[in-house]
Design a protein around this nucleic acid. Structure first.
Lengths: 220, 220
DNA sequence: CTATAATTACTGACTGGTCAGTAAGTATAG
DNA sequence: CTATACTTACTGACCAGTCAGTAATTATAG
């Protein structure tokens, strides 16, 4: 990467690609070490530039943080809304596709760090938290809630309290993605999506009890 | 040298109580702002002392962090293990008591911040993360796994993959406690345990589907 | 019951290293 | 030559950790 002495023609100027390279590097470090503990020198080094360059594209560390959060939003929502229209005729499949799609598009990718980062920094960046809540969390919940409501209407899904069910449903997915970016090192077993995800779908669709029907403490 | 029998009338000097006051103050600030962004001056101020005093009780910021994590461990585990023996005759009730008890003893208290803190800092303090994983996470999982296995043996619980089921089961509780310490400000609705918890128990015991039995996509 | 010496609990100004942000300089392209 | 993309070297604020000093309490001697 470093060829300063050689007079070889080398197009090292990448104005168009830099912002994405820098936000990607920053996301990785913010998620690993936290915002405050991340040095801008490190971010720049990981993106293959010097710190000064970073300031050509972002006017402050906080602006970089905001760009990191913003970068993982649009692709996701568009996909979710498309899925909704495509599968509204089959609410249970739609629910599975929304949740499974969330995992494939976010949970399993680099973007999985964004929820953890946002959770950790919500208190330090209340305006970003509000933005993220409105643009991502609320919109995502609406999609899942829509699927549940369709399923209830058609008698395929039990009549549950939709708002709280959406949150309970999303929690295991969020938790898995958060877990993989934190305890992964000392908890390898727990980060096996191929085991966790089938259990997750099976569990919330069919429940734990052999003969459901009564209340929680209805067993002898 | 030591003459402490006489109870001093004026507790302006509080040697015995200081460590707990300091770790409590530190927990609050670490959870709110993150470890790196928390100033020891602030911690001291919140505990009503000066920074110098803090160093009389903890030899470094890192030592304070470790003390904060350690302070929320013992009371919890003892209670869980007692519950296990007390209710092993009724596995479903035991499961509910373990999960509900976790919420009452941790999720609903100040200690709820510890999981968030540990998740955020696991990468910066790998040794603390390993300790926490062994002493808290693994032991907690064993309790819940034990309840599941008892229930399966007695035919009250479907034969599920126990290891991954434990993780899926714990996720919504963990997520709720994490959420309350981060997005609480801009997401008041979501932090209503009195709505969330019944939904949670109902969902995982009985499932979503009206007529469970087939695979996830068995609906028309 | 004093007077005073010794000890304990705590304070806050200070230091040295760290890091966000800046500005002057270099290399390359057209 | 001029503009652009980038680097290097610097600055000043900030903060973990220190330490000389203070105030409150206790011990001891007269």
């Amino acid at each position: 990467m470093k060829q300063r002495d050689k007079p070889a023609a080398r197009p090292r100027r990448r104005k168009a690609a830099r912002p994405a390279e820098l936000t990607a590097a920053a996301l990785g470090l913010f998620v690993e070490k936290g915002y405050a503990a991340t040095r801008l020198d490190e971010v720049a080094a990981r993106a293959g530039v010097s710190k000064g360059t970073l300031y050509l594209y972002f006017e402050s560390k906080e602006a970089l943080f905001k760009a990191v959060i913003a970068m993982g939003i649009d692709p996701v929502m568009a996909r979710g809304e498309a899925l909704f229209e495509e599968l509204r005729h089959d609410p249970v499949a739609l629910l599975g596709a929304l949740l499974g799609g969330w995992w494939e598009q976010i949970g399993a990718t680099e973007l999985a760090g964004i929820p953890k980062l946002m959770i950790a920094e919500a208190h330090n960046f209340p305006d970003v938290a509000r933005f993220y809540h409105e643009e991502v969390i609320s919109r995502g919940r609406e999609l899942v809630a829509g699927a549940l409501e369709l399923g209830i209407e058609r008698g395929q899904i039990r009549p549950v309290d939709v708002a709280s069910t959406v949150q309970v449903l999303m929690a295991p997915l969020l938790m898995l993605s958060v877990w993989r970016t934190s305890f992964a090192v000392c908890d390898v077993d727990a980060c096996r999506p191929e085991k966790y995800l089938p259990t997750y779908f099976d569990l919330f669709l069919k429940g734990l009890l052999v003969r459901p029907g009564g209340e929680m403490r209805d067993e002898a």
